[in-house]
Write a protein that binds this DNA or RNA. Structure first.
Length: 274
DNA sequence: CGTGGGACCTGAACGC
DNA sequence: TGCGTTCAGGTCCCAC
């Protein structure tokens, strides 16, 4: 759901719209998922200014003055919504951050139907560095082909499992892993270290293509993901194999197969992917 | 080191 | 109409 393209879409919108705002309040209900008691977080961040909105893998990072960093992970059903204080009707809101600049007032609302998502406060740049060090390179910014080759050749696990491993590469989730493997013509269960160089090149390109495409369409609103003003993305209209069980393969018309790999729904064309 | 499974929590979709 | 069951994906944690 919220994978790299979805979270990056939100990051860009938030960075554009709330940078420079000051946090002027915080309300959260009992169903929140905060790393620290809400009262403590409120005390620490009230009055701090949002310097920029960053991202590591699927984690959004609001960097505040004073070297504080507010992290949001949306997991499956989390949403971040930017609203006027008078706007009503958002469901499953667990936390509301009041934002102020000059006379402008906004609310950043953290909503999550399933409560898997979290809000985490980091109190120093060191903590942020430590968090970042647990993640692999960002595919659209840092990942070089050589590095990608090393990552894949270092594991005997199924290639799809490696793609989804956030400690190896940042931000790839089930949608884009499935679609990239189809585009590259590689079966998801292929042992990662058995993929030839030529096919690694193909997969590398395919991965960048599907992630950029996801971004261009503003993410996949397949489930509960929406952008910060509630608009849907549209990548779900362009899935290559994801969720297309029994529908014809775009290349060869063979029905797309669903299987389970590493406990996750896996979609592939038995003819095009070997 | 790797992996399989369960846990987290709840709405939606489906079966009867 | 209304009940029950199953499923979903991101990540962590535990047992093998």
């Amino acid at each position: 759901m919220p994978e790299l393209p979805e979270v990056e879409t939100i990051r860009r919108q938030l960075n554009e719209e709330i940078s420079g705002y000051t946090i002027s309040g915080l309300k959260a209900d009992a169903g929140n998922n905060f790393s620290h008691p809400v009262g403590e977080v409120r005390k620490l961040i009230t009055g701090l200014k949002i310097e920029k909105v960053d991202r590591q893998a699927k984690v959004l990072i609001l960097s505040l003055t004073g070297h504080y960093h507010l992290l949001f992970h949306l997991k499956m059903t989390g949403r971040l919504l930017l609203r006027a204080p008078s706007d009503r009707g958002d469901k499953y809101v667990h936390a509301v951050f009041a934002l102020t600049t000059g006379k402008n007032r906004l609310e950043l609302r953290f909503a999550d139907a399933r409560k898997f998502g979290y809000v985490k406060l980091l109190k120093s740049d060191e903590e942020l560095l430590k968090l970042r060090s647990g993640y692999g390179p960002e595919p659209l910014k840092e990942l070089a082909l050589n590095n990608f080759r090393q990552i894949l050749s270092a594991s005997r696990r199924a290639v799809k499992t490696v793609l989804l491993d956030q400690s190896k590469i940042s931000g790839i989730g089930n949608i884009y892993a499935n679609d990239a493997l189809w585009l590259a013509g590689i079966a998801p269960s292929t042992p990662s270290n058995k993929i030839t160089n030529g096919r690694i090149n193909k997969l590398f390109k395919a991965l960048l293509i599907v992630l950029r495409r996801g971004l261009r369409y503003g993410g996949a609103s397949d489930n509960s993901y929406v952008q910060i003003h509630g608009e849907a993305g549209s990548y779900q209209k362009h899935f290559l194999v994801y969720k297309r069980t029994q529908e014809p393969c775009i290349k060869c018309k063979t029905p797309i197969q669903r299987s389970v790999l590493g406990g996750r729904g896996t979609f592939s064309c038995p003819k095009c992917q070997r």
